[in-house]
Design a binder for these strands. Sequence first.
RNA 1: GGCGACGUACCCAAGUGGUUAAGGGGGAGGUCUGCAAAACCUCUAUUCACCGGUUCGAAUCCGGUCGUCGCCUCCA
Length: 470
Amino acid sequence: MTLRFRNTLGGALEPFEPLVAGRVGIYSCGPTVYAPAHVGNFRSFVFADLLRRYLAWSGFQVRWVMNITDVDDKIIRGAVAEGVTIGQLADRYTERFLDDLDRLRIARPDVMPRATEHIPQMVALIERLLASGHAYRTDDGSIFFRIASWPAYGRLARLDPTQQRVGERVEADEYGKDDVRDFALWKGPRAGEPSWSTSIGEGRPGWHIECSAMSIEYLGPSFDLHTGGIDLIFPHHEDEIAQSEAATGKPFVRTWLHCAHLQMRGEKMSKRTGDFSRPTDIYERGYSSRVLRYALLAAHYRASLDFSEAALASAASAVERLSTCLQALDGYRQDRRADASLDGLLTETRSAFRQALDDDLNIAPALAAVFEFVREINRRVAERTLSTEDAASAAALLRELDQVLAVVEDDAVAPDDEVDRLLAERAKARAARDWARADALRVRLAALDVIVEDTADGQRSRRAKELARG
RNA sequence: GGCGACGUACCCAAGUGGUUAAGGGGGAGGUCUGCAAAACCUCUAUUCACCGGUUCGAAUCCGGUCGUCGCCUCCA
């Protein structure tokens, strides 16, 4: 089976064929850096990261671009409220965002362009739209895209523009548009707002144009994959398509992938309702970042996912099961003949994993393949039927699959002399069959959040950090 | 009102025409272990929201009903 994706544009499951064989260009709509992003936002970034990792694992050379929106209404409002510049506010939350990405093991995109550093590219696009009659100016210096000039408008969202409930949901016309459905490419200058002096006049860019300008700049006028949350389909991505294709005359994006919402208590997690969590809130509750990653990753990207304490607890147990297996393999020593059936198991597992993810990133059967492998390996570890080399091969497969999942490998633990000393003492006590002393040391280690377990391969320790404490 | 997604065990969730309905979590019992933990084994849906229909056969196809969520405005 070959790799297939459900394309939002048209809704069909399509075989994936990159424009250039062996190479993939991905653009992901990134954050607006006016505040720390919440867990719902990160669901879509974890999804994009899974996509990127899986494509890379499958042998594609991937170029991943994610924008940083560092000028918009909310940033301007926030900067004014704090008495800082929009640059200062945006820098602060960009740093915060990058930290959040790192902790969630979302590998940094290859390019993270900022809107304010690409004004010339946006202006160039707008000039072409003005020249071709797809855009028009209004009295205040704003420039709008004329939807009536683009018959394909609404194809992505399967929305008939004439059916929009004008007046009820569509904002009243502030800028003197010809048609209320037309969207801003450029916003004329206003007192107290940042403004750029350009060939199309004074002002600042609209939201949609930045993604067109920056994706075209780094991936070309036509590229393979574009991701975002389901809420960006309309109007954001619809507008991107219209303005990009109208400006370049070329088909914009081949495949659009949209991630469903993270829900909280049955409703979309959003800052607006106040019902949301940030990653740091989850960490403070005692869950590690890879538990959070697992919780966001374990459901199919197109299915809405309810974010709850139960989901996190379940993720914590699952993650612990995976890393315990890896740890057991790393510590395993057995001088014996190789397990003749191991190669077959490794091949079957890799194949089932690939087959699942090839099917529109169907994560559940992919994880099932991993867990079935773990159960089988745990059985062989317990029965001591693996050789030391077999254990290393099994561990290597887990690590290989974890290049895609990034949840199995435990975070490196900072060395701790006190813990090391207690562990060594306990090992000595056990060797001397001094059970009372060994048990006392185990209790002391537990107080330091270190769980000690005894196995056929000796004492094993791990941090008690995946589960909520208290 | 228009458009879209969805309803499978205690929870999450795969499965889109045909042998025993994946997997994870949780729970119950057991094995192993100095003890503990981890791990392993067994059990935990004669049934897939409901009602009709098509078919030799449906969780899977068709029609209807009920319910949930999202988009149509800024939003991941």
